[in-house]
Design a protein around this nucleic acid. Structure first.
Lengths: 196, 196
DNA sequence: TGAATGACAGATATTGAAATCTGTCATCGG
DNA sequence: CCGATGACAGATTTCAATATCTGTCATTCA
């Protein structure tokens, strides 16, 4: 219908998200995306070389949003230990709200994540960099001890230690009655380990 | 063929493991199990109420083996901090060897694990109890600080923090070149957190 | 001229009929 | 008498024919 607007990668990505949301990852087709946009599917291939590339771009966009949402917690003016707890809590809360609020959409993105491990690896690196920034600040503030090896390695350890509370593979556990306690326990453990 | 021996639950479980190993979780049938044992499938139902119950029992047996293999690391005469590192390393090594050595069998058991979360929960509780025992000993030896809440909660936090290195859901990551470092980093983190 | 189209070949997914499996139970045989 | 059997109904899976989709490209149209 709306050939009124020019066809951009951005518009295609929006349409793709809509189609994924509506039909799920198994049934979403490039033809569906083209239909939503009112163009032929050949036009979509002018902007994305393959269906896989299209899905990858959607995945990247989705993950990027998490990075942006967490940025304030890296930069806030509080002491680093509080910022770390804030960052970890924000990440957990974010993921959990998404998982709880729309389980089907979450399942859809889990499939996409499984298809695009390279994108996910890059995303994880970004998150680990955010943690590393907080750790460096914390060391500067005299709150955190010097890292055993380097900030990156310790940041990765913090990220891995909390995996159970941000990795969508564990989303099913996040509605258990005692997750909050388990999460708090891990955060305490991490804080103890880092303390100067 | 061998109706020479009496049909026991134990023999059925062995046959079921063999069938699962050979055909995988999707194609393994009760009829297959009965054929291996040389009996009619009706006889299998005398010992296990349903196919699901049979699979659950196989899962339980498999998990039990891990508990047994780790027991020595709980009881060894070394200092508790070394026992903890030994226990965590043993668990990781055990899982990783299984995953690397026979990926198909691992995939099979991942399916079974997914089907039997109640059994897995009980199994995890056992493992957490083993950790808690080491933590209590370590506190007695003056190596570990008093737990923030109780030994069980801290033990669970230690278990969760190392999830990435024993949960089969992450098996795909265990062949990465830097897993060893990541594992060592987590263990250091945990040890720092516990130290008196 | 350059974006958009749609027909096309090969790959993938859907569908419904046929085959197999699960779980029950009346019957058999040691 | 008691464990084992195999025929059976309903549920699930398989398989092959059919339909749809992916990715390309010569052609159209603005």
């Amino acid at each position: 219908m709306a050939a009124t607007e020019t066809l951009t990668a951005e518009r295609i990505l929006e349409a793709t998200e809509e189609v994924l949301r509506r039909y799920g990852p198994a049934k979403a087709t490039v033809v569906d995306v083209a239909r939503v946009l009112g163009v032929s599917h050949g036009s979509v291939y002018r902007h994305f070389r393959t269906k896989a590339a299209l899905r990858e771009a959607v995945t990247e966009r989705w993950l990027e949003r998490t990075i942006v949402a967490l940025r304030p917690h890296v930069e806030a003016g509080e002491p680093a230990d509080e910022r770390l707890t804030g960052w970890l809590t924000a990440l957990f809360t974010l993921k959990r709200r998404k998982a709880g609020g729309d389980p089907e959409l979450m399942a859809t993105f889990q499939v996409l994540i499984g298809e695009n491990s390279a994108v996910v690896d890059r995303h994880e690196e970004h998150l680990v960099e955010q943690i590393a920034r907080i750790l460096e600040d914390g060391h500067g503030e005299g709150l955190f001890a010097a890292p055993e090896r380097d900030f990156g390695t310790t940041a990765r350890a913090v990220f891995d230690a909390t995996d159970r509370f941000h990795n969508p593979a564990h989303a099913a556990d996040w509605s258990a009655p005692d997750v909050e306690d388990a999460f708090t326990a891990i955060v305490s453990l991490v804080q103890r380990a880092l303390r100067a």
